[in-house]
Amino acid sequence: MEVFAYQGLIGLSSAMYLWLISAGLTIIFGVLGVLNFAHGSLFMLGAYLGYTLYGLVGVPFGLAVLGSMATVAVVGAGVERGLLRPLYGLDPSYQLLLTFGLVLFVDDLAKLIWGGVFRIPPIPEWLQGSVTLFSRPYPIYNLFLIAVGLSVGVGLWWLFDRTWWGRAVRATASDREMAAALGIRTPTVFSSVFMLGSALAALGGALSTPVRPVAPGIGAAMIVQAFIITVIGGLGNLRGAFAGSLLVGVLSSYGTLWFPEFELFFIFAIMAAVLLVRPQGLFAR
């Protein structure tokens, strides 16, 4: 029983990384209708900026994470206004091509700036160590991740359900023309949503730096999982992304324990099982 509980708790912390990256992806798709291939690149950029501020410049870890989020949010605004906006009226394949091109561009840019060598700065002192849970040491860093992930979940719920901005976003997502007719500045809503999604990707990236390698290409590995999660949860559905992250994170963890031979196949099996039962995703309306 203790083994089961511990493995589940480990899976929960993995799920929180997935949640942070898939939340941004699904928000952007839900409102803008853009399937952003470059979302993983924003995750990578967040990781590199977090590493630079915290690992190289020596900024305290918390501030480095916030700095990384703010910078990537600005980059996101630039991408949305400068590159995506001219494509909104065109066939969606143009958006896919553009965002895929961005993946290649940002990867090479990262290599040019930070080199090809992977980077892992030390874990902040206040997040080192472990606590005993289910008779085994459980990393404080993982508990911190769970706390951040859950806080982001609550924060997003509050933002979308309890603020004027959230109502404007939901109205825009529901019917752009009607929202514009009611006086909502939809271009501004689009930009702010893209900034929020980018900042969430950067949050995941920056939080990963002390325990995961920062290197060109890490975004590509993350984006595949994020896409799977958004498909499982229902494209554009935030609750679905949260549930999908938990499902994939925790079940994958149990898969590693019980079916190590099928590790690679497990996440796709979950997706296939969900799609067979609910092709539109778990939470799609």
């Binding site: 480990i10 990963s208 590995a221 590693t256 324990l257 590790e263």
Partner: peptide, 21 residues
């Protein structure tokens, strides 16, 4: 025991936990 991590794994926590069990 054995746990198998695919190429480009960034989160080994489940593998470590499974093997340590």
């Amino acid at each position: 025991g054995a746990a198998w991590a695919p190429f480009l794994t960034t989160d080994f926590s489940p593998h470590i936990a499974a093997v340590m069990a």
